[in-house]
Simulated assay, not measured.
Amino acid sequence: MIVAFTDLDDTLFQTLRKLPPGMEGLTPATLGRDGQPHSFCTPAQSALLAHFVDSGVTVIPVTGRDPAAMARVTLPFTSWQVLDHGLTILRPDGQVDAEWRGRVLEALSPLQEALEDCTVSISELAEALGCRLTRHTAHDTHFMTVFKHPDANAASLGRVQNALEDRLKSREHADLHVIANANNVSVLPRHLGKAEAVRYLRGQHFPHATLTLALGDSLSDLAFMNACDLAITPPGGQLLRTVSAAKLPQR
């Protein structure tokens, strides 16, 4: 058995804004809240998914999307699903995996005070910089705070990121960490996420898989990609941009 654990946004599909103008052969992959197509697969991405299906590869999405956002994905995923940055696992029948839910709630309980401290302490700065603050929950429990700038202003997001990282260090919130991309900055649990969910599924439900593949585009995907046998990343993503910019000695 081969299992592919894959990030979704900017890995298997993306919005038109992130595609070359006039690209042909696009396949709708998600719907917006208005019910209209919002993200699209390129011909290459569609070919990869078709190859997985034709080859009998089990494809498991590993995404930051919550259940409501995942419901707007129109691609035919039929196996397990990892949502909420790893804090929710859906079984193939669509039900929440109860064992994983119990582990998550046990781990989240001692983090609530630190999460709230970071959220409140940065909220005034974030508002002054034009960022919108959103508390995200899984299983009715706060697990992540996201600061998003409507214009993806890099300077504003950078200041929020620095302030969050300083807060974590000064308060010794070692069990939280900060992740960032072009649109937002988030604070969430360090040792509870996509990687732990993938390891759980590998150990509990796919212990005899002969090959596990990981697909992801961002630095926050690295941990779960390292939990698999081989990794695949798209060109132009945060991962390859970071590696390309690194001045590493050739040995």
Rank of each mutant, 00 (worst) to 15 (best):
L83A: 09
L83I: 10
D84R: 09
G86P: 10
T88N: 10
T88D: 08
I89N: 01
L90M: 10
L90T: 10
P92F: 05
D93A: 04
V96Y: 09
V96G: 05
D97A: 11
D97R: 09
D97T: 07
A98Y: 03
E99M: 00
G102W: 04
R103E: 14
R103V: 12
R103S: 12
R103G: 10
V104G: 07
L105N: 01
L105M: 10
L105G: 05
L105C: 09
A107K: 14
A107E: 09
L108Q: 07
S109T: 15
S109L: 15
P110R: 03
L111P: 03
L111W: 03
E113C: 12
E113I: 11
A114Q: 14
L115A: 06
C118F: 00
C118W: 01
V120N: 00
S121W: 00
I122H: 00
I122Y: 00
I122N: 03
L125V: 08
A126Q: 05
E127V: 11
E127S: 14
A128T: 15
L129I: 04
L129Q: 03
G130E: 08
G130L: 08
C131G: 09
L133V: 15
T134D: 10
R135H: 11
R135D: 13
R135N: 11
H136Q: 13
T137I: 01
H139M: 03
H139V: 03
H139P: 07
H139T: 03
F143E: 01
F143C: 02
M144R: 15
T145N: 04
V146R: 12
V146E: 13
F147H: 05
K148T: 14
K148Q: 11
H149F: 08
P150G: 06
D151Y: 11
A152D: 15
A154V: 14
A154H: 13
A154G: 04
A154T: 15
A154R: 14
A155K: 12
S156V: 02
S156T: 06
S156C: 13
L157H: 09
R159I: 04
R159G: 01
Q161M: 13
N162P: 00
L164V: 01
E165F: 04
E165I: 03
R167W: 04
L168S: 03
L168G: 03
K169I: 04
K169D: 14
S170E: 15
R171H: 12
E172L: 09
H173F: 13
A174G: 09
D175T: 07
D175Y: 04
D175S: 13
L176M: 05
L176R: 06
L176T: 04
H177K: 13
H177E: 12
H177W: 15
H177R: 14
I179D: 13
N181H: 08
N183T: 13
N183I: 06
N184V: 08
V187D: 07
P189G: 01
P189A: 01
P189N: 02
P189K: 02
H191P: 00
L192R: 05
E196D: 11
A197F: 08
Y200V: 03
Y200Q: 02
L201I: 07
L201S: 05
L201V: 06
G203V: 05
H205F: 15
F206L: 11
F206Q: 09
P207E: 05
A209G: 05
